[in-house]
Each structure stands twice: as structure tokens, then as C-alpha cells.
Amino acid sequence: MTGSKRKNKNKAILYIAILFPLLLLLFSLCLGTLRVSLKEVLEILLARISGWPSDLLTTPAANIILNIRLPRVLLALLAGAAFSVSGASLQSLFRNPLVNEYILGVSFGAGFGGAASLVLFSRNFPPQVLAFACGLLAVVLVLVISEGARNTLVAVLLTGIIVSALFQALLSTLEFIASPYALQALFFWLLGSFSQATWPDLAWSAPLILVGLVFLLKLGWRINVLSLSDDEARSLGLAVKRERILIICLATLVTSAVVAIAGIIGWVGLIVPHAVRGLVGSDNRLVLPVSAGLGASLMLLADDLIRTLLPFEFPVGILTSLVGIPFFLYLISRARTSWS
């Protein structure tokens, strides 16, 4: 393919990746037990955004759309984008297509932090804080312990499994001592679901996720260079250690901000970047934004399916694991060959 043709193709993919999640958002607001037409949805949204008092806003449909479906749909979009972008960034940083936030122990670390916050402070304190702190603690543990083995991938993967197991054990301890009421909430939350999304939750998590995503997207070029060997990146002028830490912190931030309110949803960050690299190549200036769009769309589609096809609330985290784990095994089986 010639240069300009490829550029046009990539541009088209980028626009689709931005527009598709927005269209899907409108479509998803129509779905549910109460069918609302697209026209009605648009009118309700416009009335809400314009701020004019309107009869439309007092209808039950408006209440369902604005207070139940909209936060849920937005959380699904943000979660998909967050997992995919952090997955793609970490894969480049560790130079391995199998790495993601799940493998590095972030998910269970953040899960434990969020759970501890729920049990200790109930809803009086934002769970994002402890989720981020424990997510970061998990990565640091994995990196420090595996450093002894020169950060080889096998060492990182094994340590990740062990650190995840540690936080799972801590989680079990929490579940053991939690009150029956807290336990039920904890149990459902941990399986990963967007069904409990509320505006106050989003008010804490959404800005963290958005800020983290913007910075990660702006770091796309640096992430390219950091995927070379450390010696090369250093000789090209990068402050390798500092820049790595920054990117790991940002990836942990966006992931744990999602986990804090939606629970543990794994494997999205593994599947989406892989598909995107097959589509647009390896350049993270393109891979990261397209992953954000595709990840957001897939996550929302998965949640839509669960909402409309099943008569009960099935945790989306189970669905992503059921799809993601076979995919991970498939990647491992051909890990020696190539990335895409």
C-alpha cells in the first residue's frame, strides 16, 4: 500500500473509532425493558443539556434514561477505553503482547483496595483512593520482586500471579469479616458489573479516567520509543526509568478508577490492542486512540447484550473472562512467532 493510501485508511479508522462509540451510546440508551425511541432519547438529552425547564424531563422515561441508563452506559464506555489503552501501553512498555493490568496484579490490588474502602468507610469515602493505592502497591510489588530475575517476562508473569493471589487472599479475609449486608454488595461488585453505576460514583472516577487517558494518548510517541531496548531508548534521549514509572502510574490510575466502581473486569486490555495492531500496525500514536474507541464500543456492546438478552443481571466481568481466557491461551500458543 502506498503512503498516502495507508494514511487515508488510518485516518478513516481513527474517525470510525471516535464516532462509533458515540452512536452506540445513543443506541444503547434506547435499549432496555422500557423501549424509548431514538428521537425521544435525543429530545431528553437536548432538554437536559440546554438546561431549559421542560415537561420531558419529568417523565419516567427521562428518569430512566438520565439517572439509570446514562451513567451505566458512560461507565461501560470509559471502562472499555481505560482497560484497552492501559493494556496497549503496558504491552509496549514490557515489550510483550501478553501483558495487561490483570497480569500485573493491578486488577486484584485495586479490587482489594476498593473492597477495603467499602468495608471500612462504607460509601462515605471515595473508594477510588484506596483502589489506586493498592493497585499501585500491587504493580510495585510485582516489579520489585521480579527485578531480581532481571524483569524477564516469565518472572513478571509468575510474580503477577502470586501478587494477585495475595490480594485475592486478602479479599477473602475481608469477605470473611464483612457483615452479611456488605458481603452481598461486595460479592456482586467484585464479579464486575456496570449495573450499580451512579452519578456520584462517576463524578469521582470519570475525571480520573479521562485525565489518565488524555495523558496516555499524548505519550503515544514516547511509548513507541520505550518499546525499544532500554539502552536504545536512553541513547535516544529518554529518561527511561522516570518515563516508565509515569506510564505505569497512569495505566494503574485509569484501571483502578474503573475497578473502584465497576469491580474486576479482566482481559479487555488483552484482546482489544491485539485486534487494533492487526488493523493499523504498531504505532501507538494510532494504536492507543483506536484501542480507546474499539474498547469502549466492545465493552458497551457486551453490556448491552447482557441487559437485553438475559432476564437477570449477569456480571459482565464473567463474560469478558469467558472470552478473554481462551484468547490468552491462543496468544500464548503462538507467543514465539509475532505480535500481530
Binding site: R95, N96, W339
Partner: peptide, 14 residues
């Protein structure tokens, strides 16, 4: 600038 013997090929850049 430093030219190593082989560049690392984790990602397949153009």
C-alpha cells in the same frame, strides 16, 4: 548517538 548491533523488535514499526 549510539547504534546497537541489533535493534529490539518487540513492536513491528514501519
Amino acid at each position: 548517538s549510539y547504534v546497537p548491533q541489533e535493534h529490539s523488535t518487540a513492536l513491528n514499526f514501519r
